[in-house]
Amino acid sequence: MAALGIGLPYLQQLPLEVYRGGIVDFVEVTPEVLCRERRGGTLELLPDRLKRAQDVCGALPIVVHGVELSIGSAHSCNTAYLEMLDRFQTLWPFQWHSEHLIFQTIGQDAHTLNIGVPMPMPATVEAVQLVAGRSAAIKQRYGVPFLLENTAHYLPELPSDPEIGDDVGLMNAICEQGDCLQLLDLHNVWCNAVNHHRDPFAMIDHMRLDRVGEFHVAGGSWQEGFWMDAHDSRVPEQVWELLEYTLPRTPQAGGVVFEVLEEHVPGIGADLIVNELARARGIWNRCRSS
């Protein structure tokens, strides 16, 4: 993994200056936002949107962060996404590629039904085998590192096998068997710790930190008694503490990305985004030099 530094998602509403002048070292692009879905499910990259994104990113390296693969769906993952990504890679090569360790579609008769929200995977041997196999194939297909992101969820008592244990064990086993890396989203760790009454530092201590390739930090908010992974605010202090704790122990980490949802950009504001990026850079520089 190349150590890129500090990254930001490609956000169409942000001023161009945020992507220039050394504020960010790389951009995380979600290719689906540059696409439209044709009847039949094919994903078509829209040339004007692609060009606009390339203009904004300029010479900065990019990484891909997909949202539509549904790598954990038992019936089938989204092959239309992979076909689109094949075309995307020829047009705009990326340093690495990541997706979420979730499922968001189910099969019904001969059709695929979209659930409408990402759902967590059970910590079972079958889930490991399915996702590890697909991860290895994806790594081979694109010839760049493939990373899986740990996700936040609100469901208690998910099924599990004793040899896998929990969501941490699930990720560890998939990374090992699938020859992939982890995109460690520290806000998601924080969400799960708060909502399921777990110790976030103990969760991190059980992770294969030698397989962490990238970090996400983000903000959230309380809704209905749960701390939601809403990407709608600044990074909580506890998440910064987790980054300070974890980053020095991750030799392969290629960067830290501050995640913001496009719809929350006006509310958060460019100044606060730049401040959070500067704070991430301070931690990155300190940990990388020690």
């Binding site: 969820h153 609100y154 469901l155 208690p156 209905e224």
Partner: peptide, 26 residues
Amino acid sequence: QERHNLVRIFESSGFRATARIQRSWC
């Protein structure tokens, strides 16, 4: 037993929150 375990998930406040998020997004 598996049905029972699923019902426990479906009856949880976490499931209701997930369903409300789904509804809101849709």
